[in-house]
Design a binder for these strands. Structure first.
Lengths: 166, 166
DNA sequence: ATAACTTAGTTGAAGATTCAACTATTCTCA
DNA sequence: TGAGAATAGTTGAATCTTCAACTAAGTTAT
């Protein structure tokens, strides 16, 4: 009780356990995805997402800002990632005709090939870990919960949860 | 349908949308937690978890390997993190009497004070984002789902989801 | 009792992300 | 129209994580 007065706001056990399970998941899952993708295809999960977004976009092209938005990355991170992908010839940057400040990122043939080659194993792993272990009901519960959390994380609705990336 | 033949294993829309929502969450939530904690208390979320585990342990002491297990970190990561925390005098390393290979990490008075000072704002944010927006039913759905996923991520049950860290 | 193996932890380099500062356009509106 | 603000993107340094190689101590089995 003394402690309660000093620190009145620990989480109750009913809240704590789900929260800790989420903390565990956000620690382990990203590491697992990166590990699978770098082992099998030598790209990070973020690289995979970037290439996914480009692959599904018209002309395999997106403005860099749009790409950052769709992958929930910062512009700075995107700039560094594109540097690396461009060095590997998976992506190129081209001037944007409509706005001289802007650039388009374009997925190259090699980039598309790399992405396509990486997808089967990656998706197999996504299925193995996630989709095939959850019922349809759980999948829709998960979606609902995540939408709620994302909306609170990002009051201005900037967080993207777009279709692509299959 | 053509596409299905070429790439037979894209996720179906019912699977894709929940999965993408989870990808968005694991991208945004860790960044958000780090950002809140570094802004308000100049520690990372991982630092916070490390100090939480120590704070709740008997004698505020844990073997380094055990600490790594409870925070789902690698030993190498833990070693680097402890270097930094030790430099700030939040933690110290002491020899382990039972096993000369091992060391104990101990949370210092300053470490405890820092952790205690950081907790209220952090937990307020956890509440704001997570617990107060989910019903009890959703919290238990989330727990169930996360347990399922964690068990698949970690066949040998190494992933920890222990009590502490309030 | 000792060679081979496993466990505990550290180290330093390489890679990735963040942060703040910066350039260069475009927009706003008085 | 022109000054100030906002937007698009880059850069380099600092920080953090990963990876592989390493030391040292404990364990096993012969």
């Amino acid at each position: 009780m003394k402690n309660r007065l000093v620190h009145p706001d620990w989480l109750s056990p009913e809240h704590l356990e789900p929260w800790m399970s989420l903390v565990a998941l956000i620690t382990v899952l990203p590491a697992h995805l990166d590990s699978q993708l770098t082992r099998d295809s030598n790209i990070t999960h973020f690289d995979y997402m970037v290439m996914s977004m480009l692959a599904e976009a018209p002309e395999r092209t997106l403005r860099i800002t749009e790409l950052a938005a769709r992958t929930n990355g910062t512009l700075s991170r995107m700039s560094h990632v594109l540097d690396r992908l461009e060095k590997r010839a998976f992506v190129k940057r081209v001037a944007c005709p409509e706005d001289a400040r802007a650039k388009n990122a374009v997925l190259t043939r090699e980039g598309l090939a790399t992405w396509l080659a990486s997808a089967p194993k990656h998706l197999e792993e996504v299925r193995r870990v996630v989709t095939e272990n959850l019922s349809f009901e759980q999948l829709s519960q998960l979606l609902e919960i995540n939408k709620t959390l994302l909306s609170k994380l990002d009051p201005d609705n900037l967080v993207q949860m777009r279709k692509p990336a299959r």
